[in-house]
Design a protein around this nucleic acid. Structure first.
Lengths: 125, 125
DNA sequence: CACTGATACAACCGTATGGTTGTATCAGTG
DNA sequence: CACTGATACAACCATACGGTTGTATCAGTG
């Protein structure tokens, strides 16, 4: 509950950095089904419970997962919104380089007729 | 040339970790246009040239950018493939939780049917 | 071919990170 | 209400990381 009331600035740093660890990515994947508590999650990994709990905390800080009390444990569940935030940035990059490709193709088309005139335009700083 | 002959295992750790730094993300963004050398890139950031060069090296290690000799400088250019690799993983996660939502809806639909015989049977997407 | 622009790399430093163990909290259950 | 299952958190350690400065390499250009 405490976490992310605003979420105004999508914290890309935290999101991507959190996804930069394969244990954490695996937790994210497992938590999609949203059925396991921290202790159950920890049982899947060859490290101490505390270590896993710290990973979960990192993911929670990044907004990638949330915890919900169910009975006596806290069920971990991934937050699709945060994943979308990350994906949206990658999409944005993709749009940028697609636009660049398009521009290059345009230039090639334009230059196709004027190949003989200008040729080696290198060495401009 | 030396780097990434195999690339067989998409190194998610390196890719996402590399994207976890906003300076590096900005380098990726700038390098989409593929026009600037390392020195020119460095001029955009409030840190030493060597620091930027290290960031570039990290990105190169992650396969997110490549360098190409043009005149006396090495032009940095982002590698769309690596971005796609990252995006594909996020897409995979998205498919997983969409599948989960669908399953939940099915359960809800079934339960609703039990309550009200047959009603919304079309909502199986 | 000497010069220098552009890049790479090594050594170093402070802080962050991923792991550990141990202790504290906290809510169900017997 | 005592007990304990489940989680949180603190302290600590080794290594990784982001930054610095300084030096080496290396290919164009004059």
């Amino acid at each position: 509950m405490v976490v992310s009331v605003h979420v105004a600035p999508p914290d890309f740093d935290r999101v991507f950095a959190a996804l930069g660890d394969h244990t954490r990515r695996d937790i994210v994947r497992r938590a999609i089904s949203g059925k396991e508590g921290v202790l159950e999650l920890a049982s899947h990994y060859p490290m101490s419970f505390a270590a896993v709990q710290k990973h979960v905390a990192v993911l929670e800080h990044a907004g990638l997962i949330t915890k919900q009390r169910v009975g006596r444990r806290r069920v971990v569940r991934t937050n699709p919104e945060a994943l979308l935030v990350a994906r949206r940035l990658l999409d944005q990059y993709e749009r940028l380089w697609r636009a660049r490709i398009d521009r290059m193709n345009e230039l090639i088309a334009e230059t196709a007729g004027a190949i003989d005139t200008v040729e080696t335009k290198e060495s401009k700083r």
